[in-house]
Structures are given as C-alpha cells and as structure tokens.
C-alpha cells in the first residue's frame, strides 16, 4: 500500500509527486526530494501547514496521508 503526496520546493516553486511506503520516514522524504533537486538535505526542514515534520518520524507517526502537500523550506545560517 503506497501513499502519494506532493512535495513543493519553496525555492523554485516546482513540486514533485512522491510515492511513500508506511515505514518511510520524514528524513527519507527530505533526502529523496533533495537528491532529486540536487540540493543538500541537511539544509532544509519539511512543513505541513504550521507543523515542522520531525526527521525520524515515520509517515504513519507524522500522520501523512494520501494527497497531502508538504513543503521543503530552507534553514539558512549566517555568520
């Protein structure tokens, strides 16, 4: 049983449709999206609405459902 979601890249406005298994984690979603867009996975947080989705949570724990839209947000550091 797979779950299909949209992942939006806030830095380009593009989005991908992604197929997930129940055991997949939020971290894996970030890694897959970052790999697809060739950006560094450690530099982003994933949000659904107001909530930050935590890295080690599975999609079941994070209550990610079919048709959800999540967004990859940059987490910059300045010096």
């Amino acid at each position: 049983m797979t779950t299909r979601i949209s992942v939006k890249n806030a830095e380009t406005g593009s989005s991908v449709e992604m197929e997930l298994e129940a055991e997949n984690t939020v971290e894996e979603i970030i890694e897959s999206a970052a790999s697809y867009w060739e950006v560094s996975p450690g530099a982003y947080v994933l949000r659904r609405g107001k909530a930050v989705l935590r890295g080690q949570s599975t999609i079941v724990e994070a209550k990610i459902r079919e048709g959800d839209v999540v967004e990859l947000i940059p987490d910059p550091e300045g010096g």
Binding site: R4, T12, S14, E17, M18, E19, N24, E28
Partner: peptide, 13 residues
Amino acid sequence: MKRPRVVSERKRA
C-alpha cells in the same frame, strides 16, 4: 524497504 520514489515533477513557469 523501498525509499520514497519521485513519480513526476511540475515545474513553475
């Protein structure tokens, strides 16, 4: 276990 799979992309014009 399969990793998440990107099945399509919609680019912003």
